[in-house]
Design a protein around this nucleic acid. Sequence first.
DNA 1: ATAGGGTTAG
Length: 589
Amino acid sequence: MFNSMSNSDHHLISLIVSSTGKLHLRQIYAFLLRTSLIRNSNVFHHFLSRLALSLVPRDIDYSRRVFSHRSNPSVSHCNTMIRAFSVSQTPGEGFRLFRSLRRKSSLPPNPLSSSFALKCCIKSGDLLGGLQIHGKIVSDGFLSDSLLMTTLMDLYSTCENSTYACKVFDEIPHRDTVSWNVLLSCFLSNKRTRDVLLLFDKMKNEVDGCGKPDAVTCLLALQACASLGALDFGEKVHYFIDENGLGGALNLSNTLVSMYSRCGAMDKAYQVFNRMSEKNVVSWTAMISGLAMNGFGREAIEAFNEMLKFGISPEEQTLTGLLSACSHSGLVDEGTMFFEKMRSGEFKIQPNLHHYGCIVDLLGRARLLDKAYSLITSMEMKPDSTIWRTLLGACRVQGNVELGERVISHLIELKAEEAGDYVLLLNTYSSVGKWEKVTELRSLMKEKKIHTKPGCSAIELQGTVHEFIVDDNSHLRKEKIYKMLAEINQQLKIAGYVADITSELHNLDSEEEKGHALTYHSEKLAIAFGILATPPGTTIRVTKNLRTCVDCHNFAKFVSDVYDRVVIVRDRSRFHHFKGGSCSCNDFW
DNA sequence: ATAGGGTTAG
């Protein structure tokens, strides 16, 4: 038998596959219509694939029209169209197309169309649509399709339902490295970072037939380390990468640079960075942002200039890193200059909200609060809650009650006010002694049932991350820790430290209940644990979820002097390197 | 018949 496809089909298809640009494809389409070759299903398939999936820029409207002209689309035609929607700006349409084709029975059950439809729901964050597809998967009998199940996990992960994702994972018949990786990715994006590390260990030890960690696994584990500030574990992953020959990939090296900087280990970050044979914008951005975060503003600017010398153009994130370097290090003139260069189009990138945020922060630290306020009101885009919150933080540091009140009204107007914002205002009041305002705001918060997020600090010892919350009682060695803390307080008092527990009120509920009983912020507990559990002279690294308060900041300064330890605290946005009684930052004065 | 699926850097 001859192959049913003729020679001319071959030519036509190769012409379609190699076609470039929209005009070219339109000409081909006209030709196909004129010659009735469009009726050839195979030819149509190739045409639609080219048009809907590989044309740049994509033209989803044209694809949709071409598709709807076909009276009897085959499974592959439908799948191509649904897939095209899944990577378009209107993924919801892909799901609706899938549903209507299935309802009209013009699309027989097949795992691929379900997979593409799921992708559509993932992209549009449509949990309800995804649940409908899940139902179809069950009734179609595709539950044993591992690839489809993996996509389903990703749906639940994106829709912030890690419990469902786990359930699906448990029922996958043959779990391979990718299924495990999706689970890791799920935990990473759903605030279950510690579970990522547990899973990594499990995979490394090949417990109950899980896949062996690959480059993606390491990438995810490194991100988890970065987020937790788990340096020891990060080094372990680094070692694993080298040992298994997974290194060399640009994305892995870039993630390593980022992980080391986000763990406050700039020497290690430099080491990886310098040894990279190839560097792209992402590498430079990671380095610049890392330097910024650690308070090395000058070095960040140097790195930026060097990057330009290599002929690499900055991206939005690069400039965010650069500007935040200037703000964190108080380089007002430099920051302003780079910002002006941006606005004049020198980098071909227009300022976005992040960039404005950095400048607001910069002006705030330079005590130019009014200038910061007028910059926000003059922006071409609508200010978001983060930018107002930045200004509110500056108001708190400088005790500017009047502006603080104005800022919070903006936040309320945006319906974006959070417990932390009220705490900032509260602390602004208390820092200037407006006690009646404090009482007033407190009862308002009680009325509105605003509950503050508890501060949480983590410290890593030999690969294990220990977490503490305010007044934590859960740790195995709590008695020893509290005893240690009492002793530290005594030592610090001798050195001149005065505890200031009234000006910063992170946990209002417990504060009210206990009156003036001793309350311990989580970072103090973590630092005390660090002193207790590590030999003298060891650097203490603490990671905190909120901003460090004035009192804890002061506490850490004294500890670094009295106990002769380097204390590195990573808070919400940056690092504080304490050494010999002082801190690298200029946040508090 | 055609060819088509899962995770992943700053």
